[in-house]
Amino acid sequence: GSVVKEKKEKALIEVRPYVEYYNELKALVSKISSSVNDLEEAIVVLREEEKKASEPFKTDIRILLDFLES
């Protein structure tokens, strides 16, 4: 629970300088966080969101995924 939350919060802070739609990304992460149990599940849902998103938000999600998977 809290470790996953920390990882996601740290990821958002780390990617902030590189993303165009930070507030939207943060809102998406919050929405996903409330419906998943762990980081792996969150990553799966983020990948689905990435497929549906259009640029440049798609790239923002990709940047976040790269950080979460590192």
Rank of each mutant, 00 (worst) to 15 (best):
I32Q: 02
K52I: 08
I13T: 09
E40R: 09
A53P: 00
D38F: 07
K7L: 15
S54V: 09
Y18F: 15
R47D: 02
K31W: 07
L65D: 00
S30F: 08
L46T: 01
R62T: 05
K31D: 12
L64P: 00
D38K: 07
L39K: 03
V45K: 13
E20Y: 07
Y22V: 02
K7S: 08
K51A: 13
T59D: 05
F57G: 01
Y21S: 06
V15D: 06
E69K: 09
A27I: 09
V44T: 10
E24C: 04
Y22F: 13
S35V: 12
Y22A: 01
K31L: 13
E49G: 02
K26R: 07
V29P: 00
E40I: 09
T59R: 10
K8Q: 15
L39R: 03
E9F: 07
E41G: 08
A27L: 11
D60N: 03
V29Y: 14
A53Y: 08
V15N: 03
E24G: 02
K51R: 12
E50G: 08
I43N: 02
L28W: 02
P56A: 06
S33K: 03
I43M: 13
K52D: 06
R62S: 08
K8V: 15
Y18A: 14
E41R: 05
I32Y: 02
E55N: 06
L64H: 00
R47E: 08
I43L: 12
T59F: 05
G1S: 13
I43Q: 04
L28T: 02
S33R: 03
E69W: 07
P56F: 03
S30N: 14
S2F: 00
I32N: 03
S2A: 09
E14Y: 03
V45L: 14
R16S: 08
D60L: 14
R16L: 15
V29M: 09
S33D: 12
S70Q: 11
A27R: 04
I61M: 03
E41A: 09
E24H: 03
S34P: 05
V3H: 12
A42L: 15
E69T: 12
E50N: 05
V29K: 01
F67V: 13
I13R: 13
K10E: 08
E48S: 11
E41Q: 09
N23E: 15
E49L: 04
K10Y: 05
E55P: 10
L39T: 09
K58P: 01
L28H: 01
A53Q: 08
V45F: 08
K10W: 08
E6N: 07
N37V: 08
A27Y: 06
K31M: 09
K58G: 04
R62G: 11
K5C: 15
K58N: 04
P56R: 09
K7F: 15
D38Q: 06
E24T: 04
K51G: 10
S33N: 06
E40G: 09
L12Q: 01
L68I: 08
E41I: 05
K51C: 11
K10T: 10
E9I: 13
